[in-house]
Design a protein around this nucleic acid. Sequence first.
DNA 1: CTGAAAGCGCTTACAG
DNA 2: CTGAAAGCGCTTACAG
Lengths: 345, 345
Amino acid sequence: MLNRHTTSEHAAGRRPTMRDIAREVGVSQSLVSIVFRDAPGASDETRQKVLETADRLGYVRNESARSLRSTRSTSIGVAFQTRQPFHGELLDGLYAATADLPNRLVLSAVSDFRDEAAAIRSLVSYRCGALVLLGPRLSEDEILRLSSGIPVVSVARRCSSPNVDWVVSDDFQGMSLALDHLTSLGHRRIVYLSAPISPGGRERQHAFEDAAESHRLDTEVTIRTSGMTEQDGAEAATALLGEGALPSAVIAFNDRCALGLLDVLVRHGIRVPDELSVIGFDDSEIASRTPISMTSVRQDPTSLAQFAVERALQRLAATGPANTPRGTILPTSLTVRSTTGPAPR
Amino acid sequence: MLNRHTTSEHAAGRRPTMRDIAREVGVSQSLVSIVFRDAPGASDETRQKVLETADRLGYVRNESARSLRSTRSTSIGVAFQTRQPFHGELLDGLYAATADLPNRLVLSAVSDFRDEAAAIRSLVSYRCGALVLLGPRLSEDEILRLSSGIPVVSVARRCSSPNVDWVVSDDFQGMSLALDHLTSLGHRRIVYLSAPISPGGRERQHAFEDAAESHRLDTEVTIRTSGMTEQDGAEAATALLGEGALPSAVIAFNDRCALGLLDVLVRHGIRVPDELSVIGFDDSEIASRTPISMTSVRQDPTSLAQFAVERALQRLAATGPANTPRGTILPTSLTVRSTTGPAPR
DNA sequence: CTGAAAGCGCTTACAG
DNA sequence: CTGAAAGCGCTTACAG
């Protein structure tokens, strides 16, 4: 219906093009393009007239045509996971970091029904100039093969290839904060729930081990294999409960794992933090969205996103040979809430 | 680096095109196009040779060129909110419903730094053939203006315009289930936390009122203005606690609101469900991801998404005048967990 | 089954 | 500041 009521002279059902606007205003199509690219070469008066007419005709620039004709792509492709609340926060950060560069981001989701390879291929098919991958799980070789020459920035996962930039939080410093907090409360028997097959899982476990060593806790801490989901945390809790003697504190790979753990503990009448302290990792919004709000190592999604965009834009702008790739490690902080307290006697 | 090592004869740094593949295989470019569109007109042998060569050259079809040249768009644009976990579940459902139609979905996020109008405009600029809007907040007039003739399917919000399809859960039936459950447990003094300015907020309140009336609870229920976030739920809890006499049960507009409510209640030592029962709405994953897992009215994201895709595909396929638009109302179920129990004496 | 040609709506380079 | 022309990589219609 609507498009039959436009005031322009173009045929019903056809979207207006730059040519339509040019005809209406009485200028060339190139000039309309100049106005929309915000390029030099049009008077303020013309510029305004073009924009007004475009608005009146309901014109929206055809992104496919722009992208196809442009010599250099300036869009940043983002692959994120639908089931990671933290990725939602990172997306927010990416939009904040590109607020003055509208429509720079092209999104591609990873879900149970769409694997990471498909997500990356889609971004390549849109000819993004750089890729930002949130918590990628594929091997670096796979990532490099799929991105086929497009610069890649990995967020929340360290990479070893010289062809991939990465931005991560400082796990060692985060674990040190967590252990500072726990030891100051008198905890010594501490369990870490590791997620060895998750992206960044091994690195975080090593960070815990290093932090435990520097806190002279080597012989008192235990590492147990768990995972990145509530289910993994719940299973770990069941296992711990089955063994009789609980540790005095647990640090989980992430908030989701910690929540699953807390769920089972509370169901079994364990008082948190009186009998057991729990620390999560991420400080995603879910950490505070729980009846027993959780102490967590905070990763700052805004900063992670900002650095990722910065790196991607650098790669987009780079003309000559690629400049030296580099990793960025950002500090974490500890958000103390109500799942940590003095160690039981 | 990578693109300098391809085995093809095309220049370094340039992505291969259909023309490159055609030259390599010794066929015309049109034939390569036929193969990639899976159109009739190529022998199985040729087809295989083309696909093999494409794979070897690292060819990925240019989506911009495809979209620009195609006469009819077949892509579905999806606008979702970064901070709604339920939208992540709906996205999963959309991918499931289009699993056999790869790359049909184009995503556009709504976040604090990107309003809904920008999100829709972006989908229009990619020339999507239909739009699926998750929980849109804009007025219908605005939606119609921005979509400028592209068919729209609204998910989780009812629309009155004859030009917009919609798929929603049956709030009345959901509220009836919740009240069935509560009254069978002996509850009478029930508070509903409404989110009047949220998408679908007024409809859900009316559904509660109607369900309360049909349960003959008119004079015993109370409606209080709250909202869609944990913060809103927390404020409602504080207000309730300040008034002395608690109701025996609370139904919240959504799970997030219910979680904020539970948070404050638990902090104040209120035992749930012994002293107060709580029911959320959505049964999003967060409902089960909390130490006190929550009773909630379940909206099925898989079905919502499936019907939305079905409707969008119908609109894409429609050639003549638009067929009659229609709303779809899907049933809900009640997931009983541990925040509901017998009414206190 | 195959190929040559036109053209989608833009950006770009160039001549005024 | 302005306009005519070329062409990005595909799909489409058409002639063999």
